[in-house]
Design a protein around this nucleic acid. Sequence first.
DNA 1: CTCCTTGGTGTACGGCGTACACCTATGTGT
DNA 2: ACACATAGGTGTACGCCGTACACCAAGGAG
Lengths: 228, 228
Amino acid sequence: MGESRRERLNRDRVLDAAVALADADGLDSVSMRRLATELGVVPMALYKHVADKDELLDGMVDVALGEVDAELPGPVDAAGWRLAVRGRILAARRVQLRHPWLRRVLETRTTRTPMVLAYTDALIAGFRSAGFSDPLTHHVMHALGSRIWGFTQDLFEDVNQPPPDPASFELLATAFPHIAAVAGVAVHDDGTVVARGCDDQFEFEFALDLLLDGIARLHDQGWLPPAR
Amino acid sequence: MGESRRERLNRDRVLDAAVALADADGLDSVSMRRLATELGVVPMALYKHVADKDELLDGMVDVALGEVDAELPGPVDAAGWRLAVRGRILAARRVQLRHPWLRRVLETRTTRTPMVLAYTDALIAGFRSAGFSDPLTHHVMHALGSRIWGFTQDLFEDVNQPPPDPASFELLATAFPHIAAVAGVAVHDDGTVVARGCDDQFEFEFALDLLLDGIARLHDQGWLPPAR
DNA sequence: CTCCTTGGTGTACGGCGTACACCTATGTGT
DNA sequence: ACACATAGGTGTACGCCGTACACCAAGGAG
């Protein structure tokens, strides 16, 4: 009987379903219970394929990070460290835009899966093979911070996201004039407020290039660890 | 009668208790129920002083951010934008080190309280009063990102936190040689592994100065928005 | 055909945030 | 001094969550 026999579960099916669920309905929708019903299975069944929820999240990170290589512009490593690093980071950013939950998960994760380590290793390789000293490479990786995963905190951006009504904007503008001036919002003569929003991609590349410029300069000048 | 009469609750007492609880036992210990028992009160009592848990967290952020001013090195605004910005950010960092939960809370928060806006406004003022154009100031704030709050993602750091036993380090070193080389770990001739850890304060200032150098250069060169 | 392993089930526990109805101090106007 | 409105504290309950534990059903190996 039973061509309707349900496909057997396995780790990959669980992880893929979790990713799909997070993509579709947001990270908060990814609960063991919800994921189970999504898979037509009882919640505890998942625990046969995943130790606990943390491991599920780690697995989701791996799935997403596994997509980065396909986003790489090509075998660009020979074109110099800067293009290699830049290309890899922007590839990660494209993945992150497809999986908006990735940022929040990576932020809270503390365990490093082999996939995470592999990504980091590849990036570091970009610097070292260009002759960066190990200490400089170390500092530089710290300086890039979460930007290596293609995302920024952007705690600042949402200020101008919902075009504010003139009244409340007026209020904000008088209390915090500097924010208002810089927020990319223009108040026209007739009192209407126009928010141009801001181009996230531009901001990301601006900051990335600012860092890469600084890094290049340090490297070219033969940066040395401060004498103690 | 009753000198044992319990002090009446109010918003500030609730927020202070939440901060103290988070400082002592970690952010995860801050639940409405736990906080209530800490205050000798039933959970629902808190809702008379705080709309919901999100507002509690926002309030905690305000309490912490309110401590930044006291950390400022002095009326340094006249000493140039760079010292003003740097001083304010390092002050925020000192606060953040006292309240380790602040990072996680700020990361997830999306609402901006007046306190948050005031902090941001003061920082922006530092740039604008030095003649930074509004678009440049805007980009520069994005580039600083979460660093304006005195913290970094530091997804990379914990690799060398627990001094790894030689065996597992050997494993990591062969699989990810570049990480191993850069992690600040030295393998001695006798096979013992020494992790020097890394100086978070140094890393933070290194990256901050890298950014500020780049920012200063853009400003001095009269950076203009790219022609469209 | 048996048995052992692997995968799926059912029940239950303790925690969470919070809606809602209720009671009780407290401070005010008369 | 007293009635009363209101602000602050209580109790109960609901629906989520992650997951421990005991159980049962397939399915491959001897």
